[in-house]
Design a protein around this nucleic acid. Structure first.
Lengths: 237, 237
DNA sequence: CGGCATCTTGAAATTAGTCAACCGTCGTGG
DNA sequence: CCACGACGGTTGACTAATTTCAAGATGCCG
């Protein structure tokens, strides 16, 4: 058993944490639909199923209820950037743009509720508290994505990966940051998320392993020295 | 019409305002304040003045009325990433976080209106149309920033700079993309915006110049081959 | 057990960063 | 009015980080 001393319990550095993003808002939206005889179809997807195609016409808004969805944008030459991994409670397709500006793909089994966008807009008009909570949600996504901007623009590969592992650990285990957890995404996905190549991700995993900062077997990861990782990632844990 | 306009005719001290982001919303918020005897102080800043300090307690919300503000985040070792350049109509400090998560610095003469955050929240509660327009605004910022995520994570230096110059050109001149315009920010700012070094920005400017894609004299830039730049930046113009 | 995906590892290539010198402009003060 | 210094920008030579290309290794599923 690692010697991990007491880690500051996910203190609030201001960086919003993923785990407590329950899908209350989604549930309320579904309830609202049901109360008003509005259709709000539930759909399931298997890993690798495409939920939203980039540049398709944005007819629907999706509420993610279970599972993890990867949002990505791609470029002509096959390069792609994962904009985010989102889970239960996340709402997709709220922009007023004509087209979806990203692809959404299930990476686990996924359940979503699907609303027509016009209906979604009706709901916002008629349910001010939903509107207001959606604004909160959107604003805090904006803050988080700005953090990612800094990471992509200015952090080294080591820093990026260290930060990523920390976030995944807390996303999976909450406070118990040194419990083992399972990475739901492939190395390629991690690479596309961090703006690196899969090889670099792989190599760094090995380095961290050798440096006794993580324990690693394919998908299962355990952080052995979260505080060192935090220091390395330039994140105030 | 003159075929060789010197500097694009722009609003006040520089050239604020993204083309389709007029500050109607800000004006309406100010009007609302005035109607309700709420204080909404107007403040002016000169270039290099700090409007918001990163990690300071977020007491206020700011409405940018004139000028251009650079928003940035920084890291221990002095590295910094510019999250955005924003102009008239932009609202700063809407997050419900305790602290500001970025620095805001005037790069031209800037005028802002300053509201206490609690009052701002009151306004949102009492003026649903403002709430709704703020959500629109925030959502479209999210979409734009996702585009930047792709650029920072997956584009080469050439592609980044080409895209940047195109956006600046349209931001300044609207449709007249091949008119000369003045870059309001230093090479260092451009570098911090694109996640590059100043030297790389400088070198690429020279390359583009030699390749006859731009005409360049310090701050004044003219795009000679916007379509080639667009192709290069992998941007659908 | 075989076949295929994914992952890992190594070596070479490339991009962008760093360090350092130089240039030009602008503003200040002698 | 000119000289100087500071600052921002440009350029060059070199270095470091990451990607790319190319094999292997591992593990999963049928």
């Amino acid at each position: 058993m690692p010697t991990t001393p007491s880690i500051p319990p996910a203190a609030h550095n201001g960086i919003p944490s993923f785990p407590p993003m329950p899908d209350r808002l989604c549930r309320d939206i579904v309830d609202f639909c049901n109360k008003h005889h509005a259709t709000c179809r539930e759909t399931r997807f298997r890993p690798r199923n495409i939920i939203i195609e980039e540049s398709a016409t944005a007819h629907y808004t999706f509420l993610v209820r279970h599972g993890t969805v990867k949002l990505s944008k791609s470029m002509p030459n096959g390069r792609s950037q994962i904009v985010g991994f989102v889970g239960s409670g996340h709402i997709l397709g709220t922009s007023s743009q004509e087209l979806y500006m990203f692809q959404a793909e299930a990476i686990t089994d996924v359940t979503v509720n699907r609303l027509s966008r016009t209906m979604f807009e009706d709901i916002l008009v008629n349910a001010p508290d939903i509107l207001s909570r959606l604004l909160d949600e959107t604003t805090s996504q904006l803050v988080m994505i700005q953090e990612r901007l800094l990471a992509l623009g200015r952090k080294t590969a080591r820093e990026k990966l260290a930060g990523f592992l920390l976030r995944e650990a807390t996303r999976n285990n909450g406070q118990d940051i040194h419990l083992p957890f399972s990475l739901q995404m492939s190395r390629a996905d991690i690479a596309d998320y961090l703006g690196l190549s899969t090889e670099t991700v792989s190599r760094l995993m090995s380095v961290f392993h050798q440096e006794k900062m993580i324990h690693r077997s394919r998908q299962i990861i355990q952080l052995l020295a979260p505080s060192r990782l935090a220091a390395m990632s330039c994140t105030i844990l």
